[in-house]
Amino acid sequence: MRTGAFYPSRVTRWVIAIILGVLVLIPLAMTLEYTFRDGKSHSLKHWAALFDPANKATYSPLWTGVTNSLILAVATIVIVLVLVAPTMILVTVKFPRFRRVFEFVALLPITIPAIVLVVGLSPIYLVIGRTFGTGAWTLCFAYGILALPYAFRAIQASIDATNVTTLAEAARSLGASWLNVVVRVLAPNLRSGLMAGSLISVAVVLGEYTIASLLNRQNLQTSLVVVNQQDAFVAVIVSLLALAFCFILLLVIGQLGRMGSARKERS
């Protein structure tokens, strides 16, 4: 059978790509244009204002928010890679009968609105506040749960595509400890899933508003709301920068992954 029967033609593909591209780019372009507005004309006034030391006090919540969100992103990635992924591997290899239960629990947060989640989380955060303090980083526990369904799907897809059980048993039979099984044998083969899981967690963290706001912690989104009330232009600029940051992050992580595999192939 002709493969052409299954794949759209070159022209169709381009048309689809252009339509989608336009749909994504127009709002972005308009947002960018907005940041240059200066009365009837355009200027770099608002961009300059953002970096003007004179406005430091006005924008300081913003920098706090950005810093907190970055810390939270890293902490959430750590939770995904150190807690979620090994647990999933363990369930697959050692306790396959718990897989359905585990999957159900992992996907649960997606069905619970953040506002409902907060009701349950707030008494827990009273305890967390007493034990770990009220630093913004403690939000990573909640964000780990929020990111769980997305990270789970991404990693599970990789696990399903890899013969994890046989690889783990082969490594065990060759004398590998469980740590070595996970780090040296499974992680390299689940790389794409782990990467996708981490990335999507970063996206979740950078976009999160409800929980941070209701638990009275500052992150990027809450600070944007605060700053927006004083200077809408700056809030928009920072939103754009955050988007750009995510985009660059995506490219960098993708590139790192490719370099990692290329290095392995050379040695």
């Binding site: 890899t162 013969n163 046989t166 690889l167 048993e169 082969a170 490594a171 039979s173 044998v185 390299p188 083969n189 595999s261 392995k264």
Partner: peptide, 11 residues
């Protein structure tokens, strides 16, 4: 041990 399924480490 040698397994029924191919078990070489793919990477």
């Amino acid at each position: 041990m040698v397994f029924q399924a191919y078990s070489l480490f793919p990477h």
